[in-house]
């Protein structure tokens, strides 16, 4: 009788110990995964480091490349003079994406021939407002994009 009792107590202890371990594991597992840094390392704040550099922009036939900026789409272009300029890429007319036309020296929306100069100004066509211009900073081979202070 005494033997049976002690084996049962053993079982309960084992059961409780196993449950405790499993619970600790269930808590530790997500915590460990949380601590493990994600690919992008840190949050993209208002300053964004582009995932590409000058060579990739140059390689594009249009000398321009779009990028994701928070919830918006941006475009960075290489001007003839060799400057990098970045803008919100969504046309202010009907939300199409603008493209760089180095042949015309403009940003062009193919949907309704909306045109913006390389300062983002809406120079012709239906767009009612200029494109938002971003601040571009080059540090070594890295390109950083920032929203202009209001």
């Amino acid at each position: 009788m005494a033997k049976k009792d002690s084996s049962r107590r053993d079982f309960i202890s084992w059961f409780l110990g196993g449950g405790t371990l499993a619970t600790l594991g269930a808590i530790a597992y997500p915590a460990m995964r949380f601590i493990n840094p994600p690919e992008s390392g840190e949050a993209n704040v208002s300053q964004l480091k582009l995932p590409f550099g000058r060579p990739e922009i140059q390689a594009e036939p249009s000398n321009g490349k779009t990028f994701k900026f928070g919830r918006d789409l941006g475009i960075i272009v290489l001007t003839e003079a060799g400057d990098l300029r970045a803008f919100a890429a969504t046309c202010t007319h009907l939300d199409c994406t603008v493209q760089h036309r180095p042949d015309l020296g403009i940003l062009w929306c193919s949907c309704h021939n909306g045109r913006y100069d390389l300062d983002g100004g809406n120079i012709s066509g239906p767009p009612p407002r200029p494109l938002e211009k971003y601040v571009v900073n080059e540090v070594g081979d890295d390109i950083f994009i920032k929203k202009e202070e209001v």
Binding site: P30, P37, P38, S40, A43, V45, S46, G70
Partner: peptide
């Protein structure tokens, strides 16, 4: 745990919380 990724400031607070719940594993859970 949240403190490891959270960054105070008008131009980073929202972005870092968004980062926590979208990019960090189990960030949404924490």
């Amino acid at each position: 745990l949240l403190l490891m990724y959270y960054r105070p400031g008008a131009d980073s607070a929202y972005e870092s919380v968004r980062f926590i719940i979208s990019e960090v594993e189990f960030g949404w859970l924490v």
